[in-house]
């Protein structure tokens, strides 16, 4: 279908004889309209859907964030930027932002590095290559709730697998939930388990597009494998690395299910909020207690801005640090 769009031969549609009967002229006009407007109509479904389910909620969230809007009591009063002012002073919000950033860094940095190494290994000639390549994405297609339950058991404080192993070799058990860093580590581990293979596969796809003769001439010049990796592979897949970093930033900042399952399904995120993320705090404020939609909307909007800022920072940093081909 798409191949016929706009491919109407001009000789047939254009320049009818001036004495043409009325219906010929009308079809000529329709033909012009077709050429002019139908491409927009074809893409319209996406934009209509995006407008209804994407843009409108985002803009409406901005609107709601300007109100003192509590569903339980039914108050809805215009409050200007009051919600944002309160947010700036809300220690729990900054704690959640701190946790989110911590978990994000702790998960994304090792995840992308390991994915890059993994992709490099999978890019070699070996036996059962397809099987291995497919194998690394299996964690990604498991349900995140199931992952959460299993890892919550592995990292359980008293009867967990890891603490049991530590006990058998004489170490003290780790307080996987009460210790902030331990809880971040466990959550980051969960995230990495699911997403490393996915990113590796994306890197692999990019690596396969690199012409082989580049490596051949490099090895003729005596470059080591390591040197080839850093000087050929990484710069040439730079756009892909940028893509994965942006996607990881968007996903990482919205992390919700993993810490929720890890904390026994409570949005509190540990007895002292030590692993409550922003998404969990938004949920806590918006959908439990007083259902403070205004406050929750202000937080959601701020999270949106944070994601954009961080994505841009990452974009600039990566562009600077990884030297690409100069175009």
């Amino acid at each position: 279908m798409s191949s016929t769009v706009g491919a109407v031969p001009p000789s047939r549609a254009a320049s009818p004889p001036p004495s043409a009967p009325l219906h010929r002229r009308r079809s000529y006009r329709l033909g012009r309209w077709d050429l002019k407007y139908s491409p927009y109509l074809y893409v319209a479904p996406f934009f209509v859907l995006f407008g209804v389910f994407g843009l409108f909620p985002v803009l409406y969230t901005v609107y709601v964030s300007l109100f003192d809007y509590e569903l339980l009591s039914g108050t809805k009063e215009y409050a200007g930027l009051e919600n944002y002012r309160l947010l700036m002073q809300d220690a729990q919000f900054w704690n959640a932002a701190y946790n989110t950033l911590g978990i994000f860094l702790l998960s994304t940095v090792p995840q992308l590095i390991v994915a890059l190494m993994l992709a490099n290994l999978l890019n070699r000639q070996m036996k059962a290559r397809t099987l291995l390549r497919m194998g690394v994405v299996i964690p990604n297609i498991t349900s995140v709730a199931a992952v959460g339950i299993i890892f919550a058991l592995i990292f359980a404080d008293r009867y967990g697998l890891i603490n049991w192993l530590l006990g058998t070799v004489g170490f003290d058990p780790i307080a996987w939930r009460d210790n902030r860093f331990a809880s971040w580590f466990a959550i980051a581990f969960m995230v990495d388990w699911r997403w490393t293979g996915y990113n590796a596969l994306i890197y692999l796809g990019a690596m396969q597009a690199i012409p082989k003769d580049l490596y051949e001439s490099a090895s003729l010049d005596g470059a080591s494998t390591w040197r080839q990796f850093w000087s050929i592979t990484v710069p040439l897949i730079r756009p892909t690395i940028l893509f994965t970093i942006i996607i990881s930033t968007i996903g990482g900042f919205q992390i919700f299910t993993e810490p929720l399952m890890y904390g026994n399904g409570l949005v509190r995120g540990g007895v002292d909020h030590q692993f409550q993320t922003l998404a969990m705090y938004i949920y806590e404020k918006t959908f439990t207690g007083n259902a403070e939609y205004g406050y929750g909307s202000a937080m959601s909007w701020l999270l949106f801005m944070m994601i954009i800022v961080f994505a841009l920072i990452n974009f600039v940093l990566v562009r600077r640090s990884v030297k690409g081909d100069k175009k």
């Binding site: 549609a13 139908s38 109509l41 319209a44 479904p45 209804v52």
Partner: peptide, 25 residues
Amino acid sequence: MSVMRRRLRIAAAAVLAAGVALGSA
């Protein structure tokens, strides 16, 4: 043939767009 097809195409696109609007309503 081409006029007929094009008319159909416009009609189909219009119906599709209207359907989306209706569906969300």
